[in-house]
Design a protein around this nucleic acid. Structure first.
Length: 504
RNA sequence: GUCCCCGUCGUCUAGCCCGGCCUAGGACAUCGCCCUUUCACGGCGGUAACACGGGUUCAAAUCCCGUCGGGGACGCCA
């Protein structure tokens, strides 16, 4: 493949806030195409909105992308052939090109004030006309315009939209056509001298030799203006691919009021990056056949295709994300799950920091035991309550235990179990099994009737992980120097039998 | 208001371009059964959709027109 045909894509976020999940999907699709075609993934910072852009958001942005595993080949921190990669550093380029457009009369100075424009706009709307710029300054004599500017009058620069329909091709939507009647002569440089997004994006994409512009479909209506710009500048128009919007459950554009929307939110929840990437890839894209859901990164790179991206908007489904997250928690490299899981337990104050190797081993067993039960890792501390927060009085009073505790067989089972268990410290799995068989024989109960009451005694709930892992964990934990004492089996049994006595 | 885009199970989607293989497939969720001396996991099975109305055709989820519904854009924001 010739060098100039190499696929070059870009992700161009504004550092004005947290990285939104919709933008992450855009970044992902760009990245996937770049990796599949062995092209370049360019990261460009769009900070022309000086009022809202902040350096800390840029730092955060880079960190978020790294966490997601979306690495870039060129960017503000990576040298590439078309620097600089931050728009605030590219002002000279924008001005040169704007001057050229004015000189060639493809753009013109506009002296209309914002107030005038607002009036025109309202008037147009009232008369059910297209609320586009009237073109008042369009026919101004260039020399006259120059004189007024020299006299100190403020002027913005507008692009002249051609007198014919603007057509372009979109990989997701097909051929799109806009009548020039509906597209305003856009301002490309503000009267303050600051160039505008719709202009700089074209200059930059062209300068950086971007071949495929993959972005959200909120830019679809801007595209004719941009195409007109490419043409005015005599530049090749790239391929476009406009991705549908991600919606909340109420079919409104996904926003903060729907809950988690930023990368930071999902990271803090304990969503694994591979789960998030897998989920987002499936939102608007499906493999041919549509019967596969699990796509580890290498598979995604192999299978992805822009031609298969769906044009219709998609509702963000947290449940399916959780399902994928559970999958990756169970299937993923356990070393990493342990490490992350420990982090959540530490932050909840359940584990010391730093950990001794003994505590570390125990914590690893704890995470292994609990992780298969959670949707996201931040549920770990809560689930660890069966280990750390055993409280007999609460267990006895809990409404969800009422049915188990009030069954006729519960009391004899608990007593038979308690009588034997208090003599064992620590209780081994072998002894536990032996005791359970004795209790079974003595009380003539089995299954649920046998195990539910015992479970309530030991962990305060009738559901939880298997005893053969649970009991050693409790016993070992009770002898470890942990910030929160883990009650031993004997402590639990004694406390529980005491508490149940208080009740009829 | 005008323009643009979109419309298959509750949700993500396959199928649509190149009409018949679609009695519309998969997945999440949901329900049931099995497994497990509990719960979860896992396995098996069920409920559930072509927005509506007209065409075209021997035949339409697939092509055409209209209606309705949803989203976006129309800015000296990005």
């Amino acid at each position: 493949m010739a060098e100039k045909e190499k696929v070059r894509v870009r992700f161009a976020p504004s550092p004005t806030g947290q990285l939104h999940i919709g933008n992450v999907r855009t970044a992902l699709f760009n990245w996937l195409l770049a990796r599949q075609k062995r092209g370049a993934f360019v990261l460009r910072i769009e900070d022309t909105d000086v009022g809202r852009s902040e350096a800390r958001y840029e730092t955060q942005l880079l960190e978020d992308l790294k966490w997601l595993g979306l690495d870039w080949d060129e960017g503000p921190d990576v040298d590439g052939p078309y620097p600089p990669y931050r728009q605030s550093d590219r002002m000279a380029i924008y001005h040169e090109n704007a001057q050229r457009l004015v000189r060639e009369q493809k753009a013109y100075y506009c002296f209309c004030t914002p107030e005038e424009l607002e009036r025109e706009r309202e008037q147009a709307l009232k008369e059910s006309r297209q609320p586009i710029y009237s073109g008042k300054c369009r026919r101004l004599d260039p020399d006259e315009a120059e004189r007024r500017r020299a006299a100190g009058e403020a002027a913005a620069i507008r692009l002249r939209i051609p007198e014919h329909p603007i057509r372009f091709h979109d990989i997701v939507r097909g051929d799109v056509e806009f009548s020039n009647e509906v597209v305003s002569d856009p301002i490309i440089v503000r009267s303050s001298g600051m160039p505008v997004y719709n202009y700089v994006v074209v200059i930059d994409d062209a300068a950086m030799k971007i071949t495929h512009v993959i972005r959200g479909d909120d830019h679809l209506s801007n595209t004719p203006k941009q195409v007109a710009l490419y043409e005015a500048l005599g530049l090749a128009v790239p391929e476009f691919a406009h991705l549908s919007t991600i919606l909340g459950p109420d079919r409104e554009r996904l926003s903060k009021r729907h809950g988690a929307t930023s990368v930071a939110n999902f990271r803090e929840m304990g969503i694994l990056p591979e789960a998030l990437m897998n989920y987002l890839a499936l939102l608007g894209w499906a493999p041919s056949g549509g019967n596969r859901e699990i796509f580890p990164r290498p598979e995604l790179i192999k299978e992805f295709s822009l031609e298969r991206v769906t044009p219709s908007p998609a509702i963000f489904d947290t449940e399916k994300l959780y399902w994928l997250n559970r999958h990756y928690i169970k299937q993923g490299p356990q070393e990493r799950i342990h490490q992350q899981g420990r982090g959540f337990l530490e932050r909840a104050g359940l584990l010391p920091n730093p950990l001794t190797s003994e505590v570390n081993d125990w914590a690893e067993r704890l995470v292994s035991l609990l992780a298969p039960y959670v949707d996201k890792l931040d549920q770990l501390p809560d689930h660890a309550g069966i280990i750390f927060r055993f409280d007999a009085a609460t267990a006895v009073a809990a409404p969800e235990n009422a049915e188990v505790l009030s069954s006729s067989s519960a009391k004899p089972v608990m007593q038979a179990f308690a009588r034997r268990a208090v003599n064992e410290s620590p209780l081994t799995v072998e002894r536990f099994n032996a005791i359970m068989n004795e209790v079974k024989a003595e009380t003539a109960t089995k299954g649920k009737d046998l195990f539910h009451p015992v479970r309530v005694v030991l962990i305060g709930s009738h559901s939880g992980p298997a005893f053969d892992k649970l009991i050693p964990l409790i016993e070992d934990g009770s002898r470890l120097p942990l910030p929160v004492h883990v009650k031993s089996v004997r402590e639990r049994v004694e406390e529980f039998m005491e508490a149940i006595k208080q009740r009829p």
